[in-house]
Design a binder for these strands. Sequence first.
DNA 1: GGATAATGATACGGCCCCGTAACGATCGGG
DNA 2: CCCGATCGTTACGGGGCCGTATCATTATCC
Lengths: 117, 117
Amino acid sequence: MALEIKPSQALRLWHQVNLDLVHDAQPDLSVRQVAILLTIYLDLPPHTVRGLAARLGVTKPVITRALDSMGKLGLVTRRRDENDRRNVVIQRTVAGALAVERLADMVTRRAREQGPG
Amino acid sequence: MALEIKPSQALRLWHQVNLDLVHDAQPDLSVRQVAILLTIYLDLPPHTVRGLAARLGVTKPVITRALDSMGKLGLVTRRRDENDRRNVVIQRTVAGALAVERLADMVTRRAREQGPG
DNA sequence: GGATAATGATACGGCCCCGTAACGATCGGG
DNA sequence: CCCGATCGTTACGGGGCCGTATCATTATCC
């Protein structure tokens, strides 16, 4: 059962949510950071730097830096993989889960506000 | 007739579209730039720096700089208001309209791909 | 064990964005 | 007129992200 949505509704939805994101005090995450964060919270673990880089089609330093900054915000954590100590496993946090949930509420609420066409 | 959407669908939609935005070669716009761009293309003209700043709740230099960079990308244009030469009227462009349309298609297509719950 | 490969982090130079403050241009009221 | 208010822009100092190249650490394979 796919979501039936018209282009004009899609645009208004994207507009409203982006306005909400600008308005709320939280620091704006970049498009890449959002893509990484949601991949971590929606795709099945485990998540590695290499894997995220491949999924997003960007270089590894992009992931490392994004994890650094989102780590400072408490949205994710890193842990060495004890089975293969070259790997780093990215883990979810309570704060990160809350941030994702807030985003879901934002999108859902704005979607419900959209009128026809 | 509001859009019926579940939080998990909303999150997957936001995730997919952000992944698309990262993947496509176009330079990533910031959240603020997207909010400005869509305000210009969805809200009724005329649009001024001051008005956009108020709508987004940010300072005027933020708008000026965003218009500079989006202007370089050909997404918007500026023109002096001849009635009150202090004002600047922001105008739409063909390239900007195409970019907005592409975004609408992206969101619409990804929405249709979302399964239940 | 030693060479090779793979993983994630770091260094570097460059560019863009931020907020505050100040600025020039323009309008409007007295 | 002239003074104050308004508009958009610019200057400044600071911080973040980018891609490339390089690095240390760890695993693998012969």
